[in-house]
Simulated scan of single mutants.
Amino acid sequence: MTDPLHGKRVLIIGFGRQGRSLARWLPTVGAKVIVNDGRDEKTLNLPQDEYAHVRFVLGDHPVSLVEEADIVCVSGGVPLELPLIQAAYKAGLTITNDAQLFMERCPAPVIGITGSAGKTTTTRLVGDIMQQSGFRTWVGGNIGDVLLDVLPQIAPQDRVVMELSSFQLELMTNSPQIAAVLNITPNHLDRHGTMENYTAAKANIIAHQRPDDMAILGYDDAGSHALEEAVCSQLLWFSMR
Rank of each mutant, 00 (worst) to 15 (best):
M1G: 14
P4H: 05
P4K: 07
H6F: 09
H6M: 14
R9E: 00
Q18E: 15
R20N: 02
S21D: 04
W25S: 04
W25Y: 10
P27C: 03
T28F: 05
A31H: 03
K32S: 07
I34Y: 03
N36P: 02
D37I: 05
D37P: 13
G38C: 04
R39D: 13
R39C: 00
P47E: 15
Q48D: 11
Y51I: 04
A52P: 03
H53I: 01
V54D: 02
R55I: 09
F56E: 04
V57Q: 09
P62T: 12
V63D: 05
V63M: 06
S64P: 00
L65Y: 05
V66K: 11
E68A: 12
A69L: 02
I71V: 15
V72Y: 02
V74L: 03
S75V: 09
G77M: 08
G77V: 10
V78D: 01
V78S: 01
L80K: 13
L82S: 04
P83A: 10
Q86I: 05
A88I: 03
A88V: 07
Y89V: 13
Y89K: 15
Y89G: 09
K90V: 03
L93K: 14
T94M: 06
I95D: 01
D98Y: 05
A99G: 04
L101S: 02
F102H: 08
M103L: 13
E104T: 04
R105H: 07
C106N: 11
P109R: 09
I111F: 13
G112M: 10
G115I: 08
G115D: 12
A117T: 15
T120Q: 04
T121P: 00
T121W: 00
T121E: 00
T122G: 03
T123G: 11
T123H: 00
T123P: 04
R124P: 02
I129W: 14
M130R: 01
Q131P: 01
Q132Y: 12
S133K: 15
S133E: 07
S133P: 04
G134L: 11
F135M: 02
W138M: 02
G140N: 10
G141R: 08
G144I: 11
G144D: 12
D149I: 01
V150E: 08
Q153N: 14
Q157E: 15
R159W: 08
R159Q: 15
E163R: 01
E170I: 08
L171P: 00
P176Q: 10
Q177W: 04
I178E: 09
A179Y: 04
V181L: 05
V181W: 14
V181K: 13
V181G: 11
L182Y: 10
T185V: 09
H188T: 10
H188C: 12
T194K: 12
N197S: 14
T199S: 15
A201I: 14
K202P: 09
N204S: 07
I205A: 06
H208E: 09
P211F: 12
P211C: 10
D212A: 11
A215I: 12
D220G: 11
S224H: 00
A226F: 05
L227M: 08
L227A: 11
E228Y: 00
A230H: 15
C232F: 01
C232L: 13
C232R: 15
S233Q: 08
L236K: 13
W237N: 05
W237Q: 08
M240C: 06
